Amino acid sequence: MRFIIDDQENFFKDFDQAYIDPPKKLPFYIRIGAWLSKKIIKKDLMIPKLLAWYPKAAISSGILESLVTHDDGEINKRLLKIIRIQVSVMVACPFCIDMNAFEYDKVGLSLEEINAIKNGDYTYHSFSPKEQVMMEYVCLMSNTPVVIPKEMVDRLNEHFSERGIIIIASTIAQVNYWARLIRSLGIPVAGFGDICTMEKP
């Protein structure tokens, strides 16, 4: 399966600023959340401040983020990083590509593999059969409508346990949530790394 980018010129277009400004005054619990986020990732992110316009969205998003898988015996950091980068590319979220591809080399991904993901080449020679199946699943789950053929279900079951499939599916859904929310608000790249300066596909 190959993911094709129709409009290469504008697909990864970044924004100078978000479409809306945050409220002048943030609720104290949003300020605490934004402070914690900045302390952990060393970046002053715009998203929690914007979500302060509707605090329930900020709180529920924070809870979702706090419960995602960051490493697992079966679904390791490399697999999770592939999911996060792939979804970010499919949604065309420059902020998400920048953040999710940051320190890709620390989980054993190469620049060539990152470019293969950006080009939708999920059969790149260094991706294992297990990774290729997972990437096809990411593609199917990130499309609309979501249609998962029985053949894909069978292949997933060959490579992953039930628990592994749940971790993969929930990670795909979680990254889709964030990427679509961030992209829809026009939040600019935060400058985690230089991935977004790479040549577009």
Rank of each mutant, 00 (worst) to 15 (best):
M90L: 01
L36A: 13
E131C: 07
P145R: 08
P27T: 04
P27E: 01
D121F: 05
V189N: 03
I172V: 15
I20A: 14
L80H: 04
V146P: 11
M198I: 03
K118R: 15
R180Q: 14
P129Q: 06
V189D: 01
F15C: 08
V138C: 11
M134C: 10
K39E: 08
F15E: 13
G33Q: 11
T144M: 08
A57I: 06
M134Q: 00
E162T: 13
S126Y: 08
K38N: 10
I30E: 09
L181G: 02
V146A: 11
D98P: 07
S128C: 09
D121N: 14
P48T: 00
I148P: 03
R180H: 13
L111D: 05
N76R: 02
F28T: 13
I47L: 15
E199S: 10
L36Y: 14
I187R: 05
L50C: 02
S37P: 00
Q17G: 10
W53S: 04
E113S: 04
T197M: 07
A179G: 05
D154Q: 12
F15Y: 15
I114T: 09
L80E: 00
L50N: 06
D7C: 04
S170W: 04
I182L: 07
I182D: 00
N76D: 14
K81Q: 09
S110I: 00
I187Q: 11
I172F: 06
K150S: 11
E162Y: 10
L181A: 11
N115L: 11
F11N: 08
F28Y: 12
N157Y: 06
I20L: 15
P129D: 12
R2D: 13
D7H: 10
V138G: 06
I165V: 10
S126R: 14
D105N: 15
T123D: 08
P55T: 07
M135R: 02
C139G: 09
F11P: 00
K56C: 02
A179N: 15
D6Y: 06
D7E: 12
A58R: 01
N176C: 14
Q17F: 11
A101N: 12
E112F: 05
M141H: 06
M135F: 00
M198A: 01
D7W: 04
I83L: 11
I182H: 07
T144Y: 14
N157F: 00
L109P: 05
W35G: 06
G62C: 06
G120K: 08
P27Y: 08
P27V: 03
Y122A: 03
S60G: 06
I75L: 09
L51K: 04
M135N: 00
Q174T: 14
P23S: 06
A18I: 05
A179K: 09
P48L: 04
L185D: 05
I148T: 12
I30L: 10
M46F: 09
K118T: 10
V68C: 03
L109T: 00
C196G: 01
S61C: 02
Q17C: 10
M99A: 15
F11L: 12
V133D: 04
A18H: 03
N143Q: 11
V153I: 15
P201H: 07
R2E: 14
T197S: 07
G191I: 00
Y29F: 15
D6R: 13
R163L: 06
K25H: 15
E113G: 01
L64C: 08
K200R: 12
D6Q: 14
